[in-house]
Design a protein around this nucleic acid. Sequence first.
RNA 1: GCGGGUGUAGUUCAAUGGUAGAACACCAGCUUCCCAAGCUGGGUACGAGGGUUCGAUUCCCUUCACCCGCUCCA
Length: 488
Amino acid sequence: MANQSDLMDKLTSLAKRRGFIFQSSEIYGGLGSTWDYGPLGVELKRNVKSRWWRDVVTAREDVVGMDAAILMHPRVWEASGHVEQFHDPLVDDRNTKKRYRLDHLLEAQDREVIEHLSKDLVDRPVEGNVDVHTITGIVEAIMDQADRVNLNDYGILADGKEADWTIPRQFNLMFKTFIGSSEESGVEAYLRPETPQGIFVNFLNAQATARAKLPFGIAQLGKAFRNEITTGNFLFRTREFEQMEMEFFVRPAETAEWLEYWSQARLEWYVALGIRRQKLRVRPHSQEELSHYSKATNDVEYEFPFGWGELEGIADRGTYDLDQHADYSGKKLTWFDPDTNEHIVPAVVEASAGVDRTVLTILTDAYHEEEAPKAGGEGVEQRVVLRLSPDLAPITVAVFPLVNRDGMPELARKIVDDLRGDFAASFDAGGSIGRRYRRQDEAGTPFGITVDGQTLEDQTVTIRDRDSMEQERVSIEKVKEYLRGKTG
RNA sequence: GCGGGUGUAGUUCAAUGGUAGAACACCAGCUUCCCAAGCUGGGUACGAGGGUUCGAUUCCCUUCACCCGCUCCA
């Protein structure tokens, strides 16, 4: 097994070498924390997404899908709480390397400090007690002229100690953009920081047209954007990412049991993708961790080389979102319960997963280095193999002529052409047969079909299993049946 | 954004104030009846910009990217 500390490096290198993941805009020096999916990566990612869609939407009677635009009315993000929650003015203390929220920092200062700041920046004496408005006013004034205000002039202490402050920075987690071709006349808008709001604002549309009754879910899959303060760990935290989200609407009294149900169901989904169960866990959030919208949240986590990381959050959002949107839009967002003859605001249990994180998990979990026999059967050498589930692997089956003569390449091509359409099939005649097997091992291809001398006599081929490296002889006409039996 | 580290072929690494080399990978051909074999040939790099210098991949500055922390979340 690979050394844990450099596993991510090896994975990044393999991902590039084999065409899974490339750094974005690489020829221009790269763009921070953005990654592109290559020929193999896009197939893997597509397989993940369609598997999710099948398991969460198509295969279920109680979930429907939708696909909202990335751009939404700016008021959506006021209602959702993101405008309020996603703006933090932060400063760093160079002495201790610690970071503080400016408002929290000011609240902890002595009155003289606040008075000094208020006099200089707000041009107003502090009357009575120092309250939230005073603090907010000062924060705004500081941020308005952040380049000119030196916080070190005011004796602001960090946990009671003298500090060396950086220029305060506004950390705005939402991407701003303009709708309209000129910025002056354009309406300011945001790239969505999460996908569920598109579901909440369409609650009535989707519910009514699907004629859905509680409990039921609405799912969607799509990109979201956040100006993360700190990105990193390869695909794990990026500014542009893709989410698979399902909002399950239930009677408010039933949220606890549905939270439990979805937490288990979602954990099992990752196990079904072939991820080792012992590397997965469901972890409930502590009170302090809970988001502004959630009463209870469970995270499905995977143990990465860099520690446990969240793949999916299953959250009880209560009636927060529908209440907020009803409030801000002035529209009633209720459902009529025929059992009780009441209009109720449904509560929501959300299952929100990251596509890119799932891909990263699959690659991490599948990566293995092991001993393999050398040519001629003498000695061993290292091989790198991605043990991807046959349902997820970008290439399901590769077809090779054992040697490039006697009509073997032609027959192999005929076989691979016949397989295409039913399976992701690939042809390879380059180098020795051993090299081709290894190449496919690194790509995670579960099956290798080889046309050899015997094939020309009895129309059978060998099918090699990626993990055991053992071969079975199967007649050409039974190949599809064989592969179907091994894949979903 | 702050602190620390790193940046040379596709990958992993080397060397040098006088403009770069290896291994593996890759491509073409030959060979090869089963696990990165062999032979021949081939292409590909000093992250970007500026400065010092007769001359910079090498020294300096800036910037960009990646890794490790601080913080946040899918």
